[in-house]
Nucleic acid binder design. Structure first.
Length: 355
DNA sequence: AATCCGGGGGT
DNA sequence: ACCCCAGGATT
């Protein structure tokens, strides 16, 4: 009987903890306003949730503030130039998120009158909004009783119920537990509370069980298995690929750059022309230079790791005359070129060329 | 169900 | 070197 009573008390235990320990974030409302029932701006909640996909709060904060300063409303964002948005996103990674961010803003303006729908099914239809984000916006922005399941919640549930099934197979079971726990009152605060708990106390390594509001009911803590949970199926090793990029600067200072194709790696981002990137067992590819010139190899190479492979890039540089006609890419005037608009691997190549 | 898709920070 | 992170789209 005591177990049932404890189970029913779990949400309130966590909400009481959250009322005291909620982390401050630019897209949240403060504790005073929260008590008055003030909801956060759905635009800011959505923006933060897109940026927070596979990205830490510390990394997102500055990008978020920059975006909402440049584009305070979804209408402002919908009217922005694609290149401006992609440039501001540079360095944050997973660039499909930025393309979908713009698509979504424009759909919200054209099909929803410039306001995010307070409707889980409608949110789920929007570009870049999947099961997690639809639940997050529904609960956090609109206080609707939907359950978020992110890496934090998975870890907390796996420990709270001492579930040893490895991820991702365990996801349905973890979702069942998370849904059963979601309270009808304050579901938005509750959703953020579980994630805050996972991000601060119920951390992947060395969780601080001693100060956890769910210390007593936690099955893994009782069993002493919390450090090994959640279990995960092993992932395969990353292959190594090689390639070459060409950095051409015209005599007037303009740089030869190209916008990468919309789909695929670094899609829609600015980059240096270059070869394909191929597995290391093949010869190092040089490709075809984007413009006729006297190319020279830079000392050293660029090393970069993507989600599923390591890349080693040879960097070639050349000065070209004003009348040069490239077979690939466009010369971008020196004053329009911002290295910060480049994705990190391309910025590394630029940095190498600048010594 | 598997694979693709970045980058940074912690350990 | 490996792991983790407020996942979604595509095949």
């Amino acid at each position: 009987m005591r177990e049932t009573a404890n189970h029913d008390a779990l949400p309130d235990l966590l909400l009481d903890w959250y009322d005291v320990h909620a982390r401050e974030m630019p897209w949240r409302v403060g504790p005073e306003a929260r008590k008055m029932g003030v909801r956060p701006d759905p635009y800011r909640v959505w923006m933060s949730e897109i940026m927070l996909q596979q990205t830490t709060v510390a990394t997102v904060r500055d990008y978020f503030l920059r975006f909402v300063t440049l584009w305070p409303t979804v209408g402002d964002l919908a009217a922005a130039e694609d290149a401006d948005v992609m440039g501001e996103w540079a360095g944050l990674g997973y660039y499909a998120r930025a393309r979908n961010l713009l698509k979504c803003a424009r759909v919200v303006v054209t099909e929803h009158g410039g306001a995010f729908p307070a409707d889980h099914a409608e949110l789920l239809k929007l570009p870049g909004i999947g099961p997690y984000t639809a639940a997050a916006v529904s609960s956090i922005a609109f206080d609707l009783p939907y359950t978020v399941l992110d890496g934090n919640v998975e870890r907390v549930m796996a420990r709270l119920y001492d579930i040893h099934t490895p991820l991702p197979a365990a996801k349905p079971a973890l979702m069942d537990k998370a849904e059963a726990l979601t309270p009808p009152a304050r579901p938005g605060d509750y959703a953020q509370a579980v994630m805050d708990l996972g991000a601060t106390i119920c951390s992947p390594k060395s969780p601080a069980c001693g100060i956890c509001p769910w210390r007593d009911p936690c099955a893994a803590r009782v069993a002493g298995t919390q450090n090994g949970l959640p279990k995960k199926t092993p992932k395969k090793a990353k292959p190594v690929r090689h390639g070459t990029v060409y950095l051409a600067q015209r005599e007037d200072g303009a740089w030869l750059l190209e916008t990468r194709p919309e789909k695929g790696l670094l899609g829609g981002m600015l980059g240096w022309p270059g070869s394909d990137w191929v597995d290391t067992e093949h010869a190092r590819p040089q490709g075809t230079p984007p413009v006729a010139a006297d190319w020279s190899d830079l000392n050293g190479e660029v090393r970069h790791t993507f989600t599923h492979f390591h890349l080693m890039l040879t960097v070639k540089t050349a000065q070209v005359p004003e009348h040069a006609e490239p077979r690939r890419g466009t010369f971008l005037p020196r004053e329009q070129f911002r290295p910060s608009d480049l994705p990190t691997v391309m910025r590394k190549a630029f940095d190498l060329s600048q010594g």
